[in-house]
C-alpha cells in the first residue's frame, strides 16, 4: 500500500509539472505583453522597456521558466504582474468563492442525484424510472450557461428573489453570500445531478442483481431496509468515487458559470490572467486547477482501492 501511494504521489507531481510547463510555453508564444497592457495605448518604447525590466520580462524564456520552477518547488508561486500581489494570495481570495460554489453545487447534485437514482433503480422499468431517467437525460443536455441565463431571468429579474450576479463577499454575512451562490450553484449542479442520478441508478441496479440482495429479500427483510442497508452501502463504493471526480468537473465548469454570474472566483481569475498575459498568475491558476483535478483522481484511486478489497496494488 505504501509504495503504491508513493508511486502515485510521484506521478501526481509529474503530471502537474507537465501541465504547468505546457501552459508556460503556450503563454510565451501569445501575442501581447503585460507591460503594454499596463501602460496603455500611448506608451513609448523606453517606458515599455523599463517596465519590462522591472517585471523581469526581459530575461530569456528558459531563465524565466527556471526561476518559476525553482519558486514553485518552494511552494512560492511568485507575484502577479498586473495586480502586484502574491499569486498565492490572489488564488486564496478567489478560492473563497469557487470552493463554496463547487461545494454547494456538489451538495445539490448529491442531494438530488443519490435519492433519485436509488428511486429509479428501485422502480426499474416503471413510469417513475422513465421520468427520472428522462429528466436526467435532459439535465445532461442543458448547457449550464444557458440554464444560468434563464435562472437569472426568472429568479432575479422577474421574481426578484435572488441576486442576478456578483458576490458581496463573506464579510457581508452568510445570508447574502449564500444567496449570491445559490443560482450559480444550481446552474452548475444541474448537469452533475443528472450525471450522478444515472450513475447511482446503474450502480444500484448492479447491486440489486447480486445474490446477497436476493438472499436478503428471500429472508423477508423489508424493502426499505434492503435498499438502505444492502444496496446503498454497496453502491456507495461507486458513488463516493464518482463524487470525487464530479468535484473536479465542477471546478473546471466553474470557469464559464463564474462569467455568467460575474463571480470573482478562480475561473474568472484564470480568464483575467490569460487575457492580461499575466504569466505567473496564469501559471498559478493552471497549477491549482490541474493539480486539483489530478489530486482528486488520485484520491479517487485510493478510495476505490480502500473501499473495494478486490483491487490489488500492483
Amino acid at each position: 500500500m505504501r509504495s503504491y501511494v508513493l508511486r502515485r504521489a510521484l506521478t501526481f507531481l509529474i503530471t502537474i509539472w507537465l501541465a504547468a510547463s505546457l501552459s508556460f510555453f503556450t503563454l510565451l508564444v501569445l501575442p501581447g505583453d503585460p507591460a503594454r497592457l499596463i501602460l496603455g495605448v500611448d506608451a513609448n518604447p523606453q517606458a515599455l522597456a523599463a517596465l519590462e525590466r522591472q517585471l523581469g520580462l526581459d530575461a530569456p524564456a528558459l531563465v524565466r521558466y527556471g526561476r518559476w520552477l525553482a519558486g514553485a518547488a518552494r511552494l512560492d508561486l511568485g507575484s502577479s504582474l498586473v495586480y502586484h500581489l502574491p499569486v498565492a494570495q490572489l488564488i486564496g481570495q478567489r478560492l473563497q468563492v469557487t470552493l463554496p460554489l463547487a461545494g454547494l453545487a456538489l451538495a445539490l447534485a448529491t442531494g438530488l442525484g443519490v435519492p433519485l437514482g436509488l428511486l429509479a433503480a428501485h422502480r426499474r422499468g416503471g413510469g417513475l424510472d422513465a421520468l427520472v431517467s428522462g429528466l436526467a437525460q435532459i439535465g445532461l443536455a442543458l448547457p449550464s450557461f444557458w440554464l444560468g441565463i434563464f435562472l437569472i431571468l426568472l429568479f432575479a429579474v422577474r421574481l426578484n428573489w435572488l441576486p442576478a450576479g456578483g458576490f458581496p463577499g463573506w464579510d457581508a454575512g452568510w445570508g447574502p453570500a449564500l444567496q449570491a451562490l445559490l443560482l450559480p450553484a444550481a446552474a452548475l449542479g444541474a448537469a452533475r445531478a443528472a450525471s450522478l442520478t444515472r450513475i447511482v441508478r446503474a450502480a444500484a441496479l448492479d447491486v440489486l442483481g447480486r445474490d446477497f440482495v436476493r438472499t436478503a429479500r428471500a429472508k423477508g427483510v423489508p424493502e426499505a431496509r434492503v435498499l438502505s442497508r444492502h444496496v446503498l452501502r454497496n453502491a456507495l463504493i461507486t458513488i463516493s468515487t464518482v463524487i470525487v471526480l464530479e468535484l473536479g468537473q465542477l471546478l473546471a465548469g466553474a470557469v464559464i458559470i463564474e462569467q455568467v454570474f460575474s463571480l470573482p472566483g478562480l475561473g474568472s481569475l484564470a480568464l483575467t490572467a490569460v487575457q492580461s498575459r499575466d504569466l505567473p498568475l496564469t501559471q498559478g491558476v493552471v497549477v491549482v486547477i490541474a493539480g486539483a483535478i489530478v489530486f482528486l483522481s488520485f484520491v479517487n484511486d485510493l478510495l476505490y482501492a480502500y473501499l473495494d478489497p478486490r483491487i490489488r496494488y500492483a
Binding site: 437569472i152 431571468l153 432575479a156 429579474v157 426578484n160 441576486p163 442576478a164 450576479g165 456578483g166 458581496p168 447574502p176 462569467q259 455568467v260 454570474f261 460575474s262 470573482p264
Partner: peptide, 18 residues
C-alpha cells in the same frame, strides 16, 4: 465601487436595492 461585469446582473442589483 463594486465590480459586476454582467449588464443584467447590474440592473438586477440596482432594482433590488443592493
Amino acid at each position: 465601487f463594486r465590480f459586476v461585469a454582467d449588464a443584467n446582473a447590474q440592473v438586477a442589483a440596482l432594482l433590488a436595492g443592493s
